[in-house]
Amino acid sequence: MKHKVSLTINGKGREDEVEARLLLVHYLRDVAGLTGTHIGCDTSQCGACTILLDGKAVKSCTLFAVQGDGHDVKTIEGMAASDGTLHPIQQAFWDEHGLQCGYCTPGFIMAAAYLLDRNPDPSDEEIRKGLEGNLCRCTGYVNIVKAVQSAAQTMGRDQARPQPAATGE
């Protein structure tokens, strides 16, 4: 039996008929075609599938698509501005070499967005603690922590100013 879901993904409304057991992460990837949200495990350890659901970071492999019904979803594809300007966290991951293979990166960026939303000025330890639901095999986390620190600074500055600072390569 199929169930109707209607949700907002990255600002756009969408309706689909889905099986009750379809995981939200498979819905996003296979139905909505948003392949930026990744899958790295079967047991909700890795955080590669992290998205924002009503502004809160969730692991989209732990929810069914039907549980997304009526909610607002943001995925990595929705982070940059409509003109393509990267979100300060995306920019910071780029600037600080916070990624290598990039597979974990969307999940880390979404988790960091939620972390900085709750704690705009986290310490090194708070960042490490705040991201412990995400695994990275490539970076040793060194530059991921740096990226989040640097994003926090940029976002703090941006708060004080009307427009985001454009930072080039």
């Binding site: 990595i76 982070m79 991951f93 070499h97 990039g102």
Partner: peptide
């Protein structure tokens, strides 16, 4: 800074399951 990063931080990577 790495060339590959803008696509990878934007969810535009092309991995096998994509």
């Amino acid at each position: 800074h790495r060339r590959e990063d803008p696509r990878l931080v934007s969810g535009r990577g092309r991995y096998a399951d994509d």
